Computed example of a mutant assay.
Amino acid sequence: MSPLPSTLPALVRTRVRAAVRRPSQLTPEETAGRSLVLRLVSLLLQYPDAELTESRSDLSTVVRALPATPAAAHLTRFTDWFAAQDPEALERHYVEMFDLRRKSSLYLTYYLHGDTRRRGMALLTLNQRYKAGGWDTSRGELPDHLPVVLEFAALAGPGGGEAPLRQHRRGLELIQQALTDAASPYRHVLAALLTLLPPPTEADRAAVARLVAEGPPNEEVGLAPYGTYGDGEFAPPGTFAPPTAAPPTCVPPAPTNRREGPR
């Protein structure tokens, strides 16, 4: 018997990916359902403050009313746990999972660019995408915070609105893996989100494995306000690049060690 052609695995992956419903093929009802799931995931990934914990019963009701899908099953598992926990315990668990662990941080550009100047560029580009969609970006979180990205995806629609989620698929996979390793119920929320995206490729899996082993790129730079562009560094088209500061026209006198008393 002759061996299978070497191209068969690639063909299988292509067929599997082609079988996933593309956003352009969704009916209006399916699009609305998808938007609702994205908004629920966005809410459930936010800090469990008093307002959110007081809404747990309503959230559980909405989740249980979703059509029977893998995403709905994952969200039901999470909300069952979420509703049964003490509010203070929820706060502690959230901080431990998302604030104290780098591999499950909710800031997506970190996984792609690490602490480098390219991350600042990515944040500016994402902010520009929001503004181009007519979305108000004057909020406290950075534009790559996953709940913010999810809210934009829900409002802007499956095409361009979900593009940042597809771009950061590998980071989402890493967060899901880290939460699973920590046995956190939040793994179900990430799992629900991932059911909406195309299956990962072999390249995606290899990249996630490298992230687990090596971590994101590292470069000690500041990000405020999402980084700066200078000394020839690339900036996206249309991005404001502040001009280089002019040299001083005079040199101020050197300070003396003499201290003057009050007059």
Rank of each mutant, 00 (worst) to 15 (best):
residue 3 P to G: 11
residue 5 P to G: 10
residue 6 S to D: 14
residue 7 T to P: 00
residue 12 V to R: 15
residue 14 T to K: 11
residue 15 R to G: 14
residue 19 A to M: 09
residue 22 R to V: 06
residue 27 T to I: 06
residue 27 T to L: 11
residue 34 R to P: 10
residue 40 L to A: 07
residue 43 L to Q: 06
residue 51 E to T: 12
residue 54 E to R: 12
residue 54 E to D: 15
residue 56 R to M: 08
residue 57 S to Y: 11
residue 57 S to F: 09
residue 62 V to K: 02
residue 62 V to L: 14
residue 63 V to L: 10
residue 64 R to K: 10
residue 70 P to R: 08
residue 71 A to P: 01
residue 72 A to L: 03
residue 73 A to W: 00
residue 74 H to T: 00
residue 75 L to K: 03
residue 78 F to I: 03
residue 84 A to H: 05
residue 88 E to V: 15
residue 93 H to P: 03
residue 93 H to Q: 14
residue 100 L to K: 07
residue 103 K to I: 07
residue 106 L to W: 11
residue 106 L to H: 08
residue 108 L to T: 10
residue 109 T to R: 12
residue 110 Y to V: 10
residue 116 T to H: 13
residue 117 R to M: 07
residue 119 R to Q: 11
residue 120 G to P: 04
residue 121 M to E: 04
residue 124 L to N: 04
residue 132 A to L: 10
residue 133 G to F: 05
residue 137 T to R: 03
residue 141 E to V: 08
residue 142 L to E: 01
residue 147 P to M: 03
residue 153 A to D: 02
residue 154 A to R: 00
residue 155 L to G: 02
residue 158 P to K: 00
residue 160 G to F: 01
residue 161 G to F: 03
residue 165 L to V: 06
residue 170 R to Y: 03
residue 178 A to W: 05
residue 179 L to S: 06
residue 183 A to Q: 15
residue 184 S to H: 12
residue 186 Y to C: 05
residue 198 P to C: 04
residue 199 P to Q: 08
residue 203 A to D: 15
residue 204 D to R: 12
residue 207 A to R: 04
residue 207 A to I: 00
residue 213 A to D: 13
residue 215 G to N: 09
residue 215 G to I: 12
residue 215 G to A: 11
residue 219 E to T: 06
residue 221 V to K: 03
residue 223 L to E: 10
residue 232 G to A: 04
residue 232 G to M: 03
residue 233 E to L: 14
residue 235 A to W: 04
residue 238 G to L: 00
residue 241 A to H: 01
residue 242 P to A: 15
residue 243 P to T: 02
residue 248 P to I: 07
residue 252 P to H: 07
residue 253 P to N: 09
residue 253 P to V: 11
residue 256 T to C: 05
